[in-house]
């Protein structure tokens, strides 16, 4: 228990003194995970909307794949992204392995199905008659989709939160495609793994606490936005 106590003390002293390395690691975590969440939104929102509204052969298969993808193991994603980004891999010419960009790619792959899945569920949860009503009132198809997405915007923020929460806390993919390089690709989770390996449990606990506070802060912000207007 003494270790835990030391770690908590260490966490606050690192935060109050604005330790340059911890600050850089924290900012990079935020950058990478925000970037990945943004990419996953750009891809996941349209896919989720399409799956919710369109009917096409093989839809059930795609929906099952998205639902499975919501629990995609980060190490599996990390492994495949690494293989693709190897110098001699299909995307090797990009030369982004062991850079923050590679981590954004991997994390976006993890978050995308989460965003798509929740988007699909929240649009499907709208009253079934709504689509018909909107169309009956003379909206075009594009307008109809836009109105439904707007109507589902509050549950959609849950998709953002779940996506962000999934990637900021993941370590398997980040350590594989990022390499945990000091000053370049070291983020809170990979630094925690390394400090644990080094036996610096107090620093590891401090980093964990900072990670928790960061995740809490971002989610709190989104929750405030979500709760500002009561769902009708």
């Amino acid at each position: 228990m003494e270790v835990l106590y030391d770690g908590i003390i260490q966490a606050f002293s690192l935060m109050i003194s604005l330790d340059a390395e911890v600050l850089a690691v924290t900012l990079l975590s935020l950058k990478v995970s925000c970037g990945a969440t943004l990419v996953s939104l750009i891809l996941g929102l349209p896919i989720g909307t399409l799956l919710a509204l369109a009917r096409f052969p093989g839809r059930r298969l795609v929906v099952s794949m998205v639902n499975t993808g919501m629990g995609l193991p980060p190490v599996v994603v990390g492994l495949f992204v690494t293989i693709f980004l190897w110098r001699n891999g299909p995307l090797g010419f990009l030369e982004i392995l062991y850079t923050p960009s590679a981590m954004i790619v991997a994390q976006a792959v993890i978050a995308m199905p989460i965003v798509a899945g929740i988007t699909m569920a929240s649009i499907q949860n709208l009253p079934a008659t709504m689509k018909l009503q909107v169309l009956a009132l003379g909206a075009t198809r594009v307008q109809m989709v836009w109105i439904l997405v707007r109507e589902a915007r509050l549950p959609l923020l849950a998709a953002v939160m779940a996506g962000f929460g999934g990637v900021i806390s993941e370590v398997g993919a980040s350590i594989m495609v990022g390499g945990n390089i000091k000053g370049q690709t070291r983020v809170l989770t990979t630094a925690t793994v390394m400090e644990t390996g080094k036996g610096n449990f107090d620093v590891a606990i401090a980093l964990s606490i900072i990670l928790l506070m960061l995740a809490f802060g971002v989610n709190y912000l989104l929750t405030v936005i979500q709760q500002r207007e009561r769902p009708r």
Partner: peptide
Amino acid sequence: LVMVMVSAFSAWGGAKP
């Protein structure tokens, strides 16, 4: 968010690592 992403994508450069 866009700025954060752009800066993350441009966070390296210079001599070949």
